[in-house]
Design a protein around this nucleic acid. Structure first.
Length: 500
RNA sequence: GGUCCUGUGGCCGAGUGGCUAGGCAGAGCUCUGCAAAAGCUCCUACAGCGGUUCGAAUCCGCUCGGGACCUCCA
């Protein structure tokens, strides 16, 4: 079906992608913990995997994309008082836990829509799958790889490691893990330091709690993803995605749990996106350097000079390979904003260009060859582990060709009819359908368009009379209102709402 | 301390041993009533030191710098 090659974190190399069921792909991506507002860092995996989702569909696969909502709450820190993150925040804000969860879920969905991300096929919540998680824990206990201790259940990593490779994904060495000493309270419940919780007993002040065979408690960190992925995608599925910071212990533990329950390695291709950094350091709550998405869109943050459109952020992210770190700065975003505008303006011009028969003899074989080559490389780049940056670079190489056609510096017919159509179709498919970009224009108000047309007509008349006083007055005053008027070749005028 | 990644021009970033992306910023020119936009041209870098090779940003070694994970984290 394709020659898609993806970098598999498990093998640490690029592999030919082959789905388990021909024509179908099952993909699971770790979703957000909805105990707080999403920030820039969260934008990266969801945009990255949205493009993966779009591209697989473009290749003809029917994709089931599952992305969870973690609303049951993880521990603040293993062993230490076992504070449920979501519950503690709720007390601070004097909200019901589920009210808080709903608030941040709504905000997350809103942000995803702003980025033009498709919703996943299934978006299961952890709280909605407590039963499945308990079932899975029971299976692991029955298989002899987990034990109960004081109302909690732990996975027996040491035992698992005797017959399986715990650490295969993250490159961790089991002996090191077993020897690691950490000064945490509550460790006495565990047989071994490396063991991780499947179920935790809940203290009385713990609000989010469920009845289980081991008493009242709540599920551990990793079991939700295993349970939901298994339920909706089966014992073995094609792609599991998420941020690199989840490699260990989250994904490593998922493999262990699922392998014991389902007797098969759960995932064929593990795909991990790299981090967004700020001044070279990972953006994250613990570093106190996050820029929330709402701050980004409003510009209300000390390091932001202005508000940025969600599409600018999407473009910014796609200009880098997903496995590289991406350093965030106001300057870098500003550059992306201008770059996207240049690309999108050209794309819009391209849609309006038409071939005129009278220029029929203007063919330019050299240009033709160059354009065709650049367009055909899109597939090649994308098939090489989703190199969106290279696709965009090729588009930029074609931009001057489009602009020259628009300004009639070269005739549209320099390209053959076939190639010209190929160009138009390719840009539309790749820019809109695969990369998921949209225009950022605010100028789609029909009344405003009517008014602008009137002003343009008046200005054209004034210019015809060489009445530059009136002509400049119109342009200057519009500029003060944030509307930019541009005189184009052949006496035409265009306008746009300027971005700042 | 352990495991792993990384160091590209003013900034952000692609880079498969030879053909040395792209964006932003900057300079010049052209077009234009003037602007803006656009076009053309220029700015040609690979942390340092060794090595392999006819040839290395790309492979190997060492040194120095930065980072991630090892604890919730996208």
């Amino acid at each position: 079906m394709s020659h898609l090659r993806v970098y598999n974190s498990l093998s640490r190399q690029k592999e030919e992608f082959k789905s388990i069921t021909p024509g179908h792909v099952g993909m699971y991506v770790c979703g957000p913990t909805v105990s707080g507002e999403s920030h820039m860092g969260h934008a990266r995996p969801y945009i990255t995997f949205d493009v993966v989702y779009r591209y697989l569909q473009h290749l003809g696969y029917k994709v089931r994309y599952v992305r969870n909502i973690t609303d049951a709450g993880h521990f603040e820190e293993e062993g230490r008082e076992a504070v449920d993150k979501i519950a503690s925040k709720a007390l601070l804000e004097k909200l019901e836990p589920m009210e808080l969860v709903q608030k941040y879920t709504n905000l997350f969905h809103w942000a995803m829509a702003q980025f033009n991300n498709f919703p996943p096929s299934i978006e299961p919540t952890a709280t909605g799958h407590i039963v499945e998680q308990i079932e899975m824990i029971k299976q692991i206990i029955d298989a002899g790889y987990a034990y109960e201790s004081n109302g909690s259940v732990y996975f027996d990593v040491k035992k698992y490691a005797t017959g399986h490779d715990y650490g295969k994904l993250s490159g961790r060495i089991i002996d090191d893990l077993l020897e690691t000493t950490r000064e945490l309270e509550g460790q006495e419940e565990k047989r071994d330091m490396a063991d991780f919780a499947l179920w935790k007993n809940a203290s009385p002040e713990h609000i989010m709690r469920w009845q289980s065979p081991w008493g009242v408690g709540y599920p551990g960190w990793h079991i939700e993803c295993s349970a939901m992925a298994t339920k909706y995608l089966g014992a073995q599925f094609d792609i599991h995605g998420g941020g690199m910071d989840l490699l260990f212990p989250h994904h490593e533990s998922e493999i262990a749990q699922s392998t014991i329950c389902n007797h098969v390695a759960p995932v064929r291709y593990w795909i991990h996106n790299n981090m967004i950094t700020i001044n070279g350091r990972k953006m994250g709550k613990s570093y106190n350097n996050v820029i929330k998405l709402t701050e980004l869109f409003s510009g209300e943050h000390p390091i932001l000079e202005k508000a940025y459109h969600p599409m600018t952020v999407r473009f910014f992210i796609l200009q880098t390979h997903y496995r590289s770190t991406l350093d965030f700065s106001n300057e870098a975003l500003l550059a992306s904003e201008k770059g996207l505008k240049r690309l999108w303006d050209a794309y819009e011009h391209l849609g309006k260009l038409t071939r005129e028969a009278r220029d029929a003899e203007a063919g330019d074989p050299e240009l033709e060859t160059k354009v065709v080559k650049l367009l055909k490389e899109f597939d090649e780049f994308m098939n090489d582990d989703f190199s969106t940056a290279k696709v965009l670079a090729n588009m930029f190489e074609i931009v001057p060709v489009i602009n020259s056609m628009k300004d009639k510096l070269i005739p549209v017919t320099a390209l053959s009819e076939e190639t010209f159509q190929f160009l138009q179709n390719r840009f539309k498919t790749w820019l809109e359908d695969i990369l998921g970009l949209k225009g950022v224009s605010e100028a789609d108000n029909s009344k405003l368009q009517g008014v602008m047309q009137l002003l343009i007509d008046i200005r054209k008349e004034a210019r015809g009379r060489k009445d530059f006083f009136t002509s400049d007055k119109i342009r200057n005053q519009l500029a003060e209102m944030g509307i930019l008027l541009k005189d184009e070749k052949g006496g035409e005028m265009s306008w746009e709402v300027s971005s700042s």
